[in-house]
């Protein structure tokens, strides 16, 4: 088994999930609460990675990171490195690619919190931020866990975007899925099989944890008083 690729994947998935958690909370919060007319635009952009082929997404991310784009130049002037075919570049791409897997469960969970509870909190003198941490978040943690687990699992399993943006550099951008692809190309079925089984088990365990939590939550807090 390519342990190098496995640890790289875990590191990438962990960091992606961490970034998405802090990015996803305010974004999902805004999506759940806002009544702006142009909200659908943001919703669509967030959901794009769900429908776009990874190649298309990868192509545009690569274009945006390239030395000709302002973003790419800005990053280079700041750090002295380029984003494409680096771990940092892969991280940016992963965050964008897994965005809907974090934001959508978050937003759905926040929306499901009875707005009467939120209003009650306001009338008890609590600010919007305080209300979020004291009422909305505690009541929507299964959705938050779902979002976290899904984005972690999704990042571990990503392939197309990684190949487009990161390429296949051992120890830098070669993730598990690429390693399996490599094994297959070199007809090393045993290695491909082992790594695939590991990936399958991790994914299955992650999803089982999520659904167990959700099931128990419903037992703990009935939706209606």
């Amino acid at each position: 088994m390519d342990w190098n690729a496995i640890t790289l994947s875990l590191r990438l998935a962990g960091l992606t999930t961490l970034i998405l958690f802090f990015l996803g909370l305010p974004l999902a919060c805004w999506l759940a609460a806002s009544r702006r007319r142009w909200k659908f635009l943001v919703e669509s952009v967030v959901a794009l990675p769900l429908v776009l082929p990874p190649t298309v997404l990868g192509f545009y991310i690569l274009l945006a990171m390239g030395p000709r784009s302002p973003i790419g130049r800005f990053y280079e002037s700041l750090t002295g490195h380029v984003l494409p075919f680096s771990f940092q570049g892969l991280l940016v791409a992963s965050v964008l690619y897994s965005l809907p897997f974090t934001v959508q469960p978050f937003a759905a969970a926040f929306k499901a919190v009875d707005c009467k509870l939120v209003e009650a909190s306001w009338c008890l003198g609590q600010s919007r931020v305080s209300t979020f941490f004291r009422v909305i978040l505690p009541l929507s943690w299964p959705g938050v866990v779902t979002g976290v687990v899904l984005s972690f699992a999704h990042t571990i399993g990503e392939f197309g975007v990684v190949l487009m943006v990161g390429g296949n550099l051992p120890g830098v951008t070669r993730t598990v899925s690429i390693s399996i692809y490599d094994s297959m190309q070199s007809l090393d079925y045993a290695a491909a099989g082992k790594t695939s089984l590991l990936l399958l088990l991790i994914s299955f365990a992650a999803l089982s944890v999520t659904y167990t939590l959700q099931g128990n939550f419903r037992l703990l807090w009935p939706q209606k008083l």
Binding site: K116, L117, A120, C123, P138, L139, W221, L225
Partner: peptide
């Protein structure tokens, strides 16, 4: 102080 019709107590 505002009291809504279904009391809106915090379930958690």
């Amino acid at each position: 102080g505002y009291l809504s019709q279904d009391y809106a107590l915090f379930p958690h």
